[in-house]
């Protein structure tokens, strides 16, 4: 084949084309199935990617992006200069910071405790119960919070009965409670679900390791510290990196559902802000710019955290 190529390059390229045509014909059914799928993904996934360019122009619906006026980084500057910027940044970092502070270690502790349960059936039951809130919609969670924390909710009811307060406190209507409420709600919803990945890593540990540990005189705590924890070390690092990368994802639906006009000062995060300005008020380019900025920072953070853990912990994901 190689010799033939050297002797007659045109003949070989003709053959290549012929081969390609032949395989195209042989695979015609598969290609016929693929084409509508390719069209779908181009429209629904790649067109919006092209749409990101609207962050750099003054986009008006009806015009195409290329017809609109190029404004460069104006929208980004507008966001930094807006009086809402410090507030939105503070809320985003506070809410996701609190979520990481409690939501990151909690599943690790819970998974270790579940792993220490001796009765398999009891363990399985608790696991099943703990996953349930993950499958409940945020609308239902909001309804639960109204029933628990509303003016006529259980918490006020109990506190008044115990004579701790005389007047019901509007927990959902006062901004200072919002961060605590949303952090608890996030924790309640996902702490059980997040244990799955740790538990599956722990299940991979050979039980002989524990027997050997006991022979060496390790107690319960020692076994956890020297055998269980190292087994989930790489999982912890992985989730840590992803968590840092997602620090600007402070939630979206939950803010819209649990927050209200009185608590706006504490619930408005980057995503809800971009939605309000971008879609509700029709400043599409401004909203797209904020979304793009957030995505870029997110990717940078993932790479940064990955590099850090590579250097310090000698484990990385990329």
């Amino acid at each position: 084949m190689n010799k033939l190529n050297q002797l007659n390059p045109t003949a070989s390229s003709q053959m290549k084309i012929r081969n390609a045509m032949r395989s195209l014909y042989r695979e015609r059914q598969l290609w016929l199935i693929s084409i509508p799928m390719i069209i779908w993904v181009l429209i629904f996934s790649y067109m919006p990617m092209y749409g990101i360019l609207m962050a750099f122009v003054n986009y008006i619906p009806g015009n195409t992006i290329l017809q609109s006026d190029w404004v460069g980084l104006t929208h980004f500057k507008m966001f930094f200069d807006s009086p809402d910027f410090p507030l939105v940044l503070r809320n985003t970092l506070a809410i996701s910071g609190l979520s990481i502070l409690f939501g990151f270690p909690a599943p690790i502790v819970l998974a270790i405790l579940l792993n220490e349960l001796n009765n398999k059936r009891f363990k399985k039951t608790i696991q099943t119960i703990s996953y349930l809130p993950h499958f409940i919609s945020w609308v239902v969670v909001a309804s639960i919070l109204f029933a628990l924390l509303g003016n006529e909710g259980i918490l006020n009811d109990v506190l008044i009965r115990l004579d701790i307060i005389d007047q019901p406190i509007s927990y959902l209507g006062e901004g200072k409670y919002f961060w605590g409420i949303i952090t608890s709600a996030n924790l309640w919803k996902d702490v059980g679900w997040s244990t799955i990945i740790y538990l599956s890593a722990m299940a991979g540990v050979d039980s002989e390791m524990y027997d050997a540990g006991k022979v060496d005189g390790l107690n319960r705590f020692g076994l956890i510290w020297h055998i269980t924890l190292p087994s989930i070390r790489s999982t912890i690092v992985l989730l840590w990196i992803l968590g840092i990368g997602g620090i600007l994802n402070a939630g979206f639906e939950q803010q819209l559902l649990i927050g209200n006009a009185q608590t706006r000062e504490y619930y408005e995060v980057i995503d809800t802000y971009a939605y309000k300005y971008g879609i509700e008020l029709g400043n599409y380019s401004y909203g797209a710019a904020i979304g793009l900025l957030k995505a870029i920072i997110g990717v940078t953070l993932v790479f940064g955290a990955n590099r850090f853990s590579k250097k310090v912990l000698d484990t990385s994901i990329i």
Binding site: L30, S45, P48, I52, G287
Partner: peptide
């Protein structure tokens, strides 16, 4: 296995897991 477009299809869809246009371009679409 013998489908020559198999890699193309995989990559085209896997890309969408990591990059997306975001809320506003999707809404306008």
């Amino acid at each position: 296995r013998h489908f020559s477009g198999r890699k193309l299809m995989r990559i085209m869809f896997l890309m969408t897991m990591y990059i997306s246009g975001g809320l506003i371009p999707t809404y306008l679409l």
